[in-house]
Amino acid sequence: MHQDIVLERLRARFIDRIAKLKPDLGDSFEAARHGRDVTANLTTIMSESHRIAGLAGSFAFEDLGASASDAETAIRHVLRGNRDREALSQMMKSVRAMLDRMAECLRENEVRRLIAS
């Protein structure tokens, strides 16, 4: 019982984190896409993707976790110097997918909250 409460609190904090991160990661992604501080911005997205990938599944957001893991892998591939068209396209696709999943996860949570209230 106690663990359920702790997990519910952690889940709520995780959603808060996603809500705060989503616009920030969107900005970093746009900045990188327009060539501004590419390495720094991609590194930020990669490191946050890594954290999301590690946690999301534990709060029943498996899809978000999987897309964050894909984004992390694709960005790491590019940061290691693979800058060909395919690698860049894969990276953009996977980061966009992760951002979409983050939005979905927030919507789902909003629905749950409304139902609960």
Binding site: Q3, V6, L10, F14, R51, G54, L55
Partner: peptide
């Protein structure tokens, strides 16, 4: 390095 992961670990371990 993620405090939330640490709390999750602590809760999981504690429940076992």
């Amino acid at each position: 390095d993620d405090p939330m992961m640490l709390e999750l670990l602590e809760a999981t371990l504690s429940s076992s």
